[in-house]
Design a protein around this nucleic acid. Sequence first.
DNA 1: CGGCTTGCCTAATCAGGTTAGGCAAACTCG
DNA 2: CGAGTTTGCCTAACCTGATTAGGCAAGCCG
Lengths: 189, 189
Amino acid sequence: MARVGLTTETLIRAGAETADEIGFEHTTPTELARRFGVRTASLYSHVKNAHDLKTRIALFALEELADRVSEAVAGRAGKDALTAFANVYRDYALQHPGRFAATQFRLDAETAANSAGVRHAQMSRAILRGYDLAEPHQTHAVRLLGSVFSGYVTLEGSGGFSHSAPGSQESWTEILNALDALLRTWPTG
Amino acid sequence: MARVGLTTETLIRAGAETADEIGFEHTTPTELARRFGVRTASLYSHVKNAHDLKTRIALFALEELADRVSEAVAGRAGKDALTAFANVYRDYALQHPGRFAATQFRLDAETAANSAGVRHAQMSRAILRGYDLAEPHQTHAVRLLGSVFSGYVTLEGSGGFSHSAPGSQESWTEILNALDALLRTWPTG
DNA sequence: CGGCTTGCCTAATCAGGTTAGGCAAACTCG
DNA sequence: CGAGTTTGCCTAACCTGATTAGGCAAGCCG
Protein backbone atom coordinates (compact mmCIF):
# COMPACT_ATOMS: atom_id res chain seq x y z
CA MET A 1 0.00 0.00 0.00
CA ALA A 2 2.21 2.81 -1.20
CA ARG A 3 1.08 5.97 0.48
CA VAL A 4 -0.15 8.64 -1.83
CA GLY A 5 1.05 11.47 0.38
CA LEU A 6 -2.08 13.54 0.51
CA THR A 7 -2.10 16.90 2.18
CA THR A 8 -4.82 19.47 2.48
CA GLU A 9 -2.88 21.50 -0.05
CA THR A 10 -2.70 18.81 -2.75
CA LEU A 11 -6.34 18.01 -2.15
CA ILE A 12 -7.44 21.60 -2.70
CA ARG A 13 -5.32 22.02 -5.83
CA ALA A 14 -6.69 18.78 -7.24
CA GLY A 15 -10.14 19.99 -6.23
CA ALA A 16 -9.67 23.18 -8.24
CA GLU A 17 -8.64 21.21 -11.30
CA THR A 18 -11.47 18.75 -10.85
CA ALA A 19 -13.93 21.61 -10.59
CA ASP A 20 -12.72 22.99 -13.91
CA GLU A 21 -13.10 19.57 -15.51
CA ILE A 22 -16.41 18.33 -14.18
CA GLY A 23 -17.91 21.31 -12.39
CA PHE A 24 -17.66 22.63 -8.87
CA GLU A 25 -20.87 20.93 -7.76
CA HIS A 26 -19.48 17.54 -8.73
CA THR A 27 -16.25 18.13 -6.88
CA THR A 28 -16.99 15.86 -3.94
CA PRO A 29 -14.84 13.95 -1.46
CA THR A 30 -15.77 10.74 -3.26
CA GLU A 31 -14.66 12.09 -6.61
CA LEU A 32 -11.33 13.32 -5.26
CA ALA A 33 -10.72 10.03 -3.50
CA ARG A 34 -11.32 8.27 -6.81
CA ARG A 35 -8.77 10.50 -8.52
CA PHE A 36 -6.12 9.84 -5.91
CA GLY A 37 -6.88 6.14 -5.76
CA VAL A 38 -7.70 6.15 -2.07
CA ARG A 39 -10.82 5.45 -0.05
CA THR A 40 -13.17 8.34 0.60
CA ALA A 41 -12.74 8.02 4.34
CA SER A 42 -9.04 8.76 3.93
CA LEU A 43 -9.74 12.37 2.99
CA TYR A 44 -11.26 13.11 6.35
CA SER A 45 -7.90 13.57 8.01
CA HIS A 46 -7.20 16.45 5.61
CA VAL A 47 -10.54 18.20 5.33
CA LYS A 48 -13.30 18.31 7.88
CA ASN A 49 -16.14 17.40 5.54
CA ALA A 50 -17.54 18.10 2.09
CA HIS A 51 -18.48 21.65 3.01
CA ASP A 52 -15.01 22.34 4.33
CA LEU A 53 -13.53 21.00 1.11
CA LYS A 54 -15.64 23.33 -1.00
CA THR A 55 -14.93 26.27 1.24
CA ARG A 56 -11.20 25.73 0.90
CA ILE A 57 -11.42 25.45 -2.86
CA ALA A 58 -13.41 28.68 -2.88
CA LEU A 59 -10.79 30.44 -0.78
CA PHE A 60 -8.06 29.13 -3.04
CA ALA A 61 -9.79 30.41 -6.17
CA LEU A 62 -10.55 33.77 -4.58
CA GLU A 63 -6.89 34.13 -3.70
CA GLU A 64 -5.70 33.10 -7.14
CA LEU A 65 -8.07 35.47 -8.88
CA ALA A 66 -7.14 38.35 -6.57
CA ASP A 67 -3.47 37.76 -7.38
CA ARG A 68 -4.13 37.93 -11.08
CA VAL A 69 -6.28 41.00 -10.84
CA SER A 70 -3.82 42.81 -8.63
CA GLU A 71 -0.99 42.09 -11.03
CA ALA A 72 -3.01 43.23 -14.02
CA VAL A 73 -4.19 46.42 -12.40
CA ALA A 74 -0.82 47.47 -11.00
CA GLY A 75 0.44 50.62 -12.67
CA ARG A 76 -2.76 51.26 -14.56
CA ALA A 77 -5.47 53.83 -14.01
CA GLY A 78 -8.77 54.98 -15.46
CA LYS A 79 -10.19 53.02 -18.34
CA ASP A 80 -6.96 51.10 -18.65
CA ALA A 81 -7.34 49.76 -15.14
CA LEU A 82 -11.04 49.13 -15.61
CA THR A 83 -10.58 46.96 -18.67
CA ALA A 84 -7.58 45.16 -17.17
CA PHE A 85 -9.62 44.27 -14.10
CA ALA A 86 -12.63 43.24 -16.11
CA ASN A 87 -10.70 41.16 -18.59
CA VAL A 88 -8.75 39.25 -15.99
CA TYR A 89 -12.00 38.51 -14.23
CA ARG A 90 -13.74 37.31 -17.36
CA ASP A 91 -10.77 35.35 -18.67
CA TYR A 92 -10.48 33.56 -15.36
CA ALA A 93 -14.11 32.56 -15.55
CA LEU A 94 -13.75 31.31 -19.11
CA GLN A 95 -10.52 29.41 -18.50
CA HIS A 96 -11.45 28.09 -15.09
CA PRO A 97 -15.21 27.74 -14.94
CA GLY A 98 -15.08 25.44 -11.93
CA ARG A 99 -12.85 27.74 -9.93
CA PHE A 100 -14.97 30.68 -10.92
CA ALA A 101 -18.05 28.87 -9.69
CA ALA A 102 -16.13 28.23 -6.50
CA THR A 103 -15.55 31.96 -6.01
CA GLN A 104 -19.30 32.31 -5.84
CA PHE A 105 -19.69 29.67 -3.18
CA ARG A 106 -21.45 31.23 -0.25
CA LEU A 107 -19.06 31.65 2.66
CA ASP A 108 -20.19 32.39 6.17
CA ALA A 109 -19.54 35.95 7.31
CA GLU A 110 -16.40 35.27 9.29
CA THR A 111 -14.74 33.17 6.61
CA ALA A 112 -15.58 35.76 4.00
CA ALA A 113 -14.12 38.54 6.12
CA ASN A 114 -10.79 36.72 6.29
CA SER A 115 -10.77 35.78 2.62
CA ALA A 116 -9.27 37.38 -0.44
CA GLY A 117 -12.76 38.74 -1.06
CA VAL A 118 -11.57 41.71 0.93
CA ARG A 119 -8.78 42.32 -1.59
CA HIS A 120 -11.30 42.17 -4.40
CA ALA A 121 -13.31 44.90 -2.76
CA GLN A 122 -10.22 47.04 -2.26
CA MET A 123 -9.20 46.64 -5.87
CA SER A 124 -12.63 47.64 -7.09
CA ARG A 125 -12.31 50.85 -5.12
CA ALA A 126 -8.83 51.38 -6.46
CA ILE A 127 -10.18 51.29 -9.99
CA LEU A 128 -12.53 54.10 -9.18
CA ARG A 129 -9.74 56.35 -7.97
CA GLY A 130 -9.12 57.09 -11.62
CA TYR A 131 -12.62 58.50 -11.86
CA ASP A 132 -13.80 61.43 -9.84
CA LEU A 133 -16.48 59.96 -7.63
CA ALA A 134 -17.16 61.11 -4.09
CA GLU A 135 -18.94 58.97 -1.54
CA PRO A 136 -21.56 57.65 -1.50
CA HIS A 137 -21.49 57.55 -5.29
CA GLN A 138 -18.28 55.60 -5.25
CA THR A 139 -19.88 52.81 -3.28
CA HIS A 140 -22.83 52.69 -5.63
CA ALA A 141 -20.44 52.52 -8.56
CA VAL A 142 -18.44 49.72 -6.94
CA ARG A 143 -21.63 47.76 -6.54
CA LEU A 144 -22.58 48.39 -10.14
CA LEU A 145 -19.23 47.16 -11.41
CA GLY A 146 -19.40 44.07 -9.26
CA SER A 147 -22.90 43.34 -10.48
CA VAL A 148 -22.05 43.79 -14.14
CA PHE A 149 -18.91 41.71 -14.05
CA SER A 150 -20.29 38.84 -12.05
CA GLY A 151 -23.61 38.96 -13.84
CA TYR A 152 -22.14 39.08 -17.33
CA VAL A 153 -19.62 36.34 -16.74
CA THR A 154 -22.19 34.11 -15.11
CA LEU A 155 -24.69 34.56 -17.91
CA GLU A 156 -22.00 34.04 -20.50
CA GLY A 157 -20.83 30.90 -18.73
CA SER A 158 -24.29 29.42 -18.62
CA GLY A 159 -24.62 29.86 -22.35
CA GLY A 160 -26.83 32.92 -22.27
CA PHE A 161 -25.05 34.71 -25.09
CA SER A 162 -24.03 31.86 -27.32
CA HIS A 163 -25.85 31.05 -30.51
CA SER A 164 -26.85 34.66 -31.05
CA ALA A 165 -25.26 37.54 -32.86
CA PRO A 166 -23.35 39.68 -32.15
CA GLY A 167 -20.69 37.64 -30.40
CA SER A 168 -20.07 37.89 -26.71
CA GLN A 169 -16.65 39.47 -27.12
CA GLU A 170 -18.16 42.45 -28.93
CA SER A 171 -20.76 42.98 -26.26
CA TRP A 172 -18.09 42.78 -23.59
CA THR A 173 -15.92 45.39 -25.29
CA GLU A 174 -18.80 47.74 -25.85
CA ILE A 175 -20.07 47.31 -22.31
CA LEU A 176 -16.66 48.22 -20.94
CA ASN A 177 -16.68 51.33 -23.11
CA ALA A 178 -20.11 52.21 -21.88
CA LEU A 179 -19.15 51.69 -18.25
CA ASP A 180 -16.10 53.88 -18.70
CA ALA A 181 -18.26 56.62 -20.19
CA LEU A 182 -20.77 56.21 -17.40
CA LEU A 183 -18.14 56.48 -14.68
CA ARG A 184 -16.78 59.66 -16.24
CA THR A 185 -20.21 61.28 -16.32
CA TRP A 186 -21.82 59.62 -13.30
CA PRO A 187 -25.10 61.40 -12.51
CA THR A 188 -24.69 62.76 -9.00
CA GLY A 189 -27.91 64.20 -8.28
CA MET B 1 -54.46 5.39 4.11
CA ALA B 2 -56.33 8.50 2.97
CA ARG B 3 -54.93 9.51 -0.34
CA VAL B 4 -53.25 12.89 -0.44
CA GLY B 5 -54.24 13.56 -4.03
CA LEU B 6 -50.92 14.64 -5.41
CA THR B 7 -50.58 16.00 -8.90
CA THR B 8 -47.59 17.35 -10.74
CA GLU B 9 -49.15 20.77 -10.30
CA THR B 10 -49.49 20.64 -6.51
CA LEU B 11 -46.00 19.20 -6.27
CA ILE B 12 -44.46 22.06 -8.21
CA ARG B 13 -46.34 24.73 -6.27
CA ALA B 14 -45.29 23.15 -3.00
CA GLY B 15 -41.80 22.91 -4.41
CA ALA B 16 -41.75 26.65 -5.09
CA GLU B 17 -42.84 27.40 -1.53
CA THR B 18 -40.37 24.93 -0.11
CA ALA B 19 -37.59 26.56 -2.11
CA ASP B 20 -38.45 29.94 -0.62
CA GLU B 21 -38.39 28.46 2.86
CA ILE B 22 -35.33 26.25 2.86
CA GLY B 23 -33.59 27.05 -0.41
CA PHE B 24 -33.86 25.69 -3.92
CA GLU B 25 -30.95 23.29 -3.48
CA HIS B 26 -32.68 21.64 -0.55
CA THR B 27 -35.90 21.24 -2.44
CA THR B 28 -35.60 17.51 -3.06
CA PRO B 29 -38.09 14.72 -3.70
CA THR B 30 -37.48 13.45 -0.18
CA GLU B 31 -38.22 16.83 1.35
CA LEU B 32 -41.46 17.24 -0.61
CA ALA B 33 -42.55 13.73 0.28
CA ARG B 34 -41.99 14.58 3.94
CA ARG B 35 -44.16 17.67 3.60
CA PHE B 36 -46.99 15.77 1.99
CA GLY B 37 -46.69 12.89 4.42
CA VAL B 38 -46.07 10.31 1.71
CA ARG B 39 -43.16 8.08 0.82
CA THR B 40 -40.54 9.47 -1.52
CA ALA B 41 -41.20 6.76 -4.07
CA SER B 42 -44.75 8.03 -4.43
CA LEU B 43 -43.58 11.19 -6.13
CA TYR B 44 -42.18 9.30 -9.05
CA SER B 45 -45.54 8.93 -10.70
CA HIS B 46 -45.77 12.73 -10.92
CA VAL B 47 -42.23 13.80 -11.77
CA LYS B 48 -39.61 11.85 -13.62
CA ASN B 49 -36.78 12.39 -11.16
CA ALA B 50 -35.12 15.03 -9.02
CA HIS B 51 -33.82 16.91 -12.04
CA ASP B 52 -37.24 16.96 -13.62
CA LEU B 53 -38.69 18.32 -10.38
CA LYS B 54 -36.20 21.18 -10.29
CA THR B 55 -36.67 21.92 -13.95
CA ARG B 56 -40.41 22.21 -13.49
CA ILE B 57 -40.03 24.51 -10.51
CA ALA B 58 -37.66 26.63 -12.58
CA LEU B 59 -40.15 26.85 -15.43
CA PHE B 60 -42.91 27.75 -12.99
CA ALA B 61 -40.86 30.57 -11.45
CA LEU B 62 -39.77 31.86 -14.85
CA GLU B 63 -43.40 32.00 -15.89
CA GLU B 64 -44.54 33.71 -12.72
CA LEU B 65 -41.80 36.31 -12.91
CA ALA B 66 -42.48 36.99 -16.57
CA ASP B 67 -46.15 37.56 -15.75
CA ARG B 68 -45.29 40.08 -13.08
CA VAL B 69 -42.79 41.90 -15.24
CA SER B 70 -45.11 42.07 -18.19
CA GLU B 71 -47.90 43.50 -16.06
CA ALA B 72 -45.60 46.10 -14.51
CA VAL B 73 -44.12 47.18 -17.79
CA ALA B 74 -47.40 47.45 -19.69
CA GLY B 75 -48.18 51.02 -20.59
CA ARG B 76 -44.83 52.37 -19.49
CA ALA B 77 -41.86 53.54 -21.49
CA GLY B 78 -38.37 54.94 -21.02
CA LYS B 79 -37.07 55.26 -17.52
CA ASP B 80 -40.48 54.44 -16.16
CA ALA B 81 -40.45 51.08 -17.84
CA LEU B 82 -36.82 50.47 -16.91
CA THR B 83 -37.40 50.97 -13.21
CA ALA B 84 -40.66 49.03 -13.25
CA PHE B 85 -38.91 46.07 -14.85
CA ALA B 86 -35.95 46.28 -12.53
CA ASN B 87 -38.00 46.65 -9.38
CA VAL B 88 -40.29 43.75 -10.13
CA TYR B 89 -37.27 41.62 -10.79
CA ARG B 90 -35.53 42.63 -7.58
CA ASP B 91 -38.65 42.43 -5.43
CA TYR B 92 -39.32 38.95 -6.72
CA ALA B 93 -35.83 37.88 -5.74
CA LEU B 94 -36.16 39.39 -2.28
CA GLN B 95 -39.62 38.00 -1.60
CA HIS B 96 -39.03 34.63 -3.21
CA PRO B 97 -35.35 33.80 -2.93
CA GLY B 98 -35.92 30.12 -3.63
CA ARG B 99 -37.96 30.74 -6.75
CA PHE B 100 -35.44 33.30 -7.90
CA ALA B 101 -32.67 30.75 -7.45
CA ALA B 102 -34.82 28.40 -9.48
CA THR B 103 -34.98 30.88 -12.37
CA GLN B 104 -31.21 30.56 -12.59
CA PHE B 105 -31.31 26.79 -12.77
CA ARG B 106 -29.51 25.74 -15.91
CA LEU B 107 -31.99 24.41 -18.44
CA ASP B 108 -31.00 22.48 -21.49
CA ALA B 109 -31.25 24.38 -24.74
CA GLU B 110 -34.55 22.96 -25.89
CA THR B 111 -36.31 23.42 -22.57
CA ALA B 112 -35.02 26.96 -22.33
CA ALA B 113 -36.23 27.76 -25.83
CA ASN B 114 -39.77 26.73 -24.88
CA SER B 115 -39.70 28.51 -21.53
CA ALA B 116 -40.81 31.92 -20.39
CA GLY B 117 -37.15 32.89 -20.67
CA VAL B 118 -38.07 33.88 -24.19
CA ARG B 119 -40.63 36.36 -22.86
CA HIS B 120 -37.99 37.82 -20.56
CA ALA B 121 -35.75 38.47 -23.52
CA GLN B 122 -38.57 40.10 -25.45
CA MET B 123 -39.45 42.36 -22.57
CA SER B 124 -35.85 43.46 -22.16
CA ARG B 125 -35.87 44.54 -25.76
CA ALA B 126 -39.19 46.28 -25.31
CA ILE B 127 -37.68 48.40 -22.56
CA LEU B 128 -35.04 49.62 -24.94
CA ARG B 129 -37.59 50.81 -27.46
CA GLY B 130 -37.92 53.88 -25.27
CA TYR B 131 -34.30 54.66 -25.89
CA ASP B 132 -32.86 55.30 -29.28
CA LEU B 133 -30.48 52.43 -29.83
CA ALA B 134 -29.82 50.81 -33.17
CA GLU B 135 -28.45 47.32 -33.56
CA PRO B 136 -26.00 45.99 -32.58
CA HIS B 137 -25.91 48.46 -29.70
CA GLN B 138 -29.34 47.40 -28.58
CA THR B 139 -28.20 43.83 -28.09
CA HIS B 140 -25.17 44.97 -26.14
CA ALA B 141 -27.42 47.09 -23.96
CA VAL B 142 -29.83 44.20 -23.38
CA ARG B 143 -26.93 42.10 -22.21
CA LEU B 144 -25.74 44.85 -19.93
CA LEU B 145 -29.14 45.20 -18.32
CA GLY B 146 -29.47 41.48 -17.85
CA SER B 147 -26.03 41.33 -16.29
CA VAL B 148 -26.64 44.21 -13.91
CA PHE B 149 -30.02 43.01 -12.73
CA SER B 150 -29.11 39.40 -12.23
CA GLY B 151 -25.71 40.27 -10.83
CA TYR B 152 -26.99 42.86 -8.40
CA VAL B 153 -29.84 40.78 -7.12
CA THR B 154 -27.66 37.72 -6.72
CA LEU B 155 -24.97 39.62 -4.82
CA GLU B 156 -27.58 41.30 -2.68
CA GLY B 157 -29.21 37.98 -1.95
CA SER B 158 -25.97 36.37 -0.88
CA GLY B 159 -25.41 39.16 1.61
CA GLY B 160 -22.83 41.07 -0.40
CA PHE B 161 -24.27 44.46 0.42
CA SER B 162 -25.52 44.00 3.93
CA HIS B 163 -23.70 45.35 6.94
CA SER B 164 -22.21 48.21 4.97
CA ALA B 165 -23.35 51.73 4.32
CA PRO B 166 -25.01 53.07 2.28
CA GLY B 167 -27.97 50.72 2.21
CA SER B 168 -28.71 48.51 -0.73
CA GLN B 169 -31.89 50.38 -1.63
CA GLU B 170 -29.95 53.59 -2.21
CA SER B 171 -27.44 51.86 -4.43
CA TRP B 172 -30.23 50.27 -6.41
CA THR B 173 -31.98 53.59 -6.99
CA GLU B 174 -28.82 55.33 -8.01
CA ILE B 175 -27.77 52.49 -10.28
CA LEU B 176 -31.11 52.66 -12.08
CA ASN B 177 -30.61 56.40 -12.53
CA ALA B 178 -27.15 55.79 -13.86
CA LEU B 179 -28.34 53.11 -16.28
CA ASP B 180 -31.07 55.38 -17.55
CA ALA B 181 -28.53 58.13 -18.17
CA LEU B 182 -26.22 55.65 -19.84
CA LEU B 183 -28.92 54.37 -22.18
CA ARG B 184 -29.79 57.91 -23.22
CA THR B 185 -26.18 58.71 -24.07
CA TRP B 186 -24.94 55.28 -25.12
CA PRO B 187 -21.51 55.65 -26.75
CA THR B 188 -21.92 54.36 -30.30
CA GLY B 189 -18.72 54.29 -32.04
C1' DC C 1 -72.26 -3.76 -7.25
C1' DG C 2 -68.12 -5.38 -9.96
C1' DG C 3 -64.22 -4.11 -12.56
C1' DC C 4 -60.61 -1.07 -13.85
C1' DT C 5 -57.52 2.55 -13.05
C1' DT C 6 -54.02 4.42 -10.51
C1' DG C 7 -52.34 6.60 -6.23
C1' DC C 8 -49.50 5.38 -2.80
C1' DC C 9 -46.98 1.67 -0.51
C1' DT C 10 -43.16 -1.87 0.55
C1' DA C 11 -38.87 -3.64 -0.63
C1' DA C 12 -34.56 -3.33 -2.54
C1' DT C 13 -30.52 -1.18 -4.62
C1' DC C 14 -27.03 2.38 -5.33
C1' DA C 15 -24.20 6.58 -4.52
C1' DG C 16 -22.40 10.02 -1.48
C1' DG C 17 -21.12 11.60 3.28
C1' DT C 18 -19.32 10.65 7.75
C1' DT C 19 -17.42 8.43 12.08
C1' DA C 20 -14.84 4.93 14.81
C1' DG C 21 -11.22 2.22 15.28
C1' DG C 22 -7.09 -0.43 13.46
C1' DC C 23 -2.63 -1.54 11.04
C1' DA C 24 1.56 -0.32 9.33
C1' DA C 25 4.59 3.02 6.91
C1' DA C 26 7.59 6.54 7.79
C1' DC C 27 9.58 9.86 10.82
C1' DT C 28 12.33 10.91 15.29
C1' DC C 29 15.70 10.44 18.42
C1' DG C 30 19.13 8.08 21.06
C1' DC D 1 20.59 1.51 13.09
C1' DG D 2 16.73 0.31 15.97
C1' DA D 3 12.79 1.44 19.19
C1' DG D 4 9.09 4.29 19.78
C1' DT D 5 5.84 7.47 18.11
C1' DT D 6 3.19 9.66 14.77
C1' DT D 7 -0.12 9.48 11.35
C1' DG D 8 -1.66 8.17 6.61
C1' DC D 9 -4.74 5.26 4.79
C1' DC D 10 -7.79 1.29 5.50
C1' DT D 11 -12.04 -1.56 6.90
C1' DA D 12 -16.48 -1.56 8.74
C1' DA D 13 -20.64 0.48 9.65
C1' DC D 14 -24.38 3.76 9.37
C1' DC D 15 -27.14 7.67 7.55
C1' DT D 16 -29.56 10.29 3.94
C1' DG D 17 -31.16 10.85 -0.66
C1' DA D 18 -32.40 8.97 -5.44
C1' DT D 19 -34.49 5.54 -7.99
C1' DT D 20 -36.94 1.22 -9.77
C1' DA D 21 -40.06 -2.88 -9.53
C1' DG D 22 -43.95 -4.72 -8.15
C1' DG D 23 -48.26 -4.92 -5.12
C1' DC D 24 -52.62 -3.58 -2.79
C1' DA D 25 -56.59 -1.11 -2.31
C1' DA D 26 -59.28 3.31 -2.88
C1' DG D 27 -62.24 5.41 -5.74
C1' DC D 28 -64.15 6.09 -10.34
C1' DC D 29 -67.21 4.11 -14.29
C1' DG D 30 -70.50 1.64 -16.08
